[in-house]
């Protein structure tokens, strides 16, 4: 399978521009960048992709062992960087992908010029003095919640999945499939996302990073953003007015402005 198919890669913008690589977070796919990415089309080369197991990526590429840790996803990012021969990459990662970007940039710092971390969290579970925002039980409850919506999901989404092979290009169906993931993979991704502890990796990062911290983000509370900022040498923290965990959807203008200001 080709790299393009494997990660459902879409490119836009100026082919000769500095590449911006957009990585979506847990629960979504690359469409979450639809209000943000176009704003950079005039100046940058835009590369959007779906993590394996999400969106329109090739589910056959999913491998339990490889994706048992965020390292597997970081390897994917590097695979894309090498496959498309990207240099000086501005990596824009949301939620769990923020940490995936950090891992990738730690491994191959030469390839990355800047990281934009939207709602990052190195560890979602409270651990001693560290406040991640969740207890282990919360994560189990979240998995329950995933399961609760599993029946409904399977009812609602089965036709979409069935028509997988012949999805039209962009359009309404695309947003229908948004968040539509194989429930089994979703559970596994959820585990990896919420049970990972990558706090130790923060100190290894040498790439400048922008941290976008929303107001009232229950997934990545402000304390976590502060922790990330504190442990990422040379990072910039921007506290946004936007609320929730997805400023790229709920407040795209503010998000774009913050990124442009940083770049």
């Amino acid at each position: 399978m080709s790299l393009i198919q494997k990660f459902a890669i879409n490119e836009a913008g100026r082919p000769d521009g500095q590449p911006m690589l957009f990585a979506h977070g847990f629960g979504c796919d690359q469409n979450m960048w639809r209000f943000v990415a176009p704003e950079f089309a005039g100046s940058h080369r835009l590369v959007l992709f779906d993590h394996v197991g999400a969106g329109r990526s090739d589910l056959r590429a999913y491998d339990d062992r490889r994706y048992a840790s965020l390292d597997g996803y970081a390897s994917d990012v590097l695979e894309i960087v090498h496959g498309l021969d990207l240099h000086d990459v501005i990596f824009v990662g949301h939620s769990v992908s923020a940490m995936i970007g950090v891992l990738a940039a730690v491994r191959e710092p030469d390839r990355f010029s800047k990281l934009v971390l939207v709602g990052p969290s190195p560890c979602y579970i409270d651990d001693g003095d560290y406040v991640g925002g969740f207890g282990r039980a919360d994560i189990e409850a979240m998995l329950e919640s995933l399961d609760s919506n599993y029946l409904g999901w399977s009812r609602a989404m089965a036709p979409v999945i069935a028509g997988n092979a012949e999805r039209p290009e962009l359009g309404q169906e695309l947003t229908d499939s948004f968040c539509a993931t194989d429930p089994d993979i979703a559970r596994k991704f959820a585990r990896v996302t919420f049970l990972s502890d990558n706090r130790a990796d923060l100190a290894k990062l040498r790439t400048p990073a922008l941290i976008l911290q929303c107001t009232d983000d229950v997934i990545a509370p402000s304390a976590v953003g502060a922790y990330v900022h504190e442990h990422l040498a040379g990072s910039t923290l921007v506290a946004m007015n936007a609320t929730g965990h997805c400023p790229n959807l709920s407040a795209p203008a503010e998000t774009v402005a913050a990124i442009k200001a940083y770049l």
Partner: peptide
Amino acid sequence: AGDRIYHETHYAP
């Protein structure tokens, strides 16, 4: 809490 995560990661987007 679990639903909140689901709310933020699925419902809201």
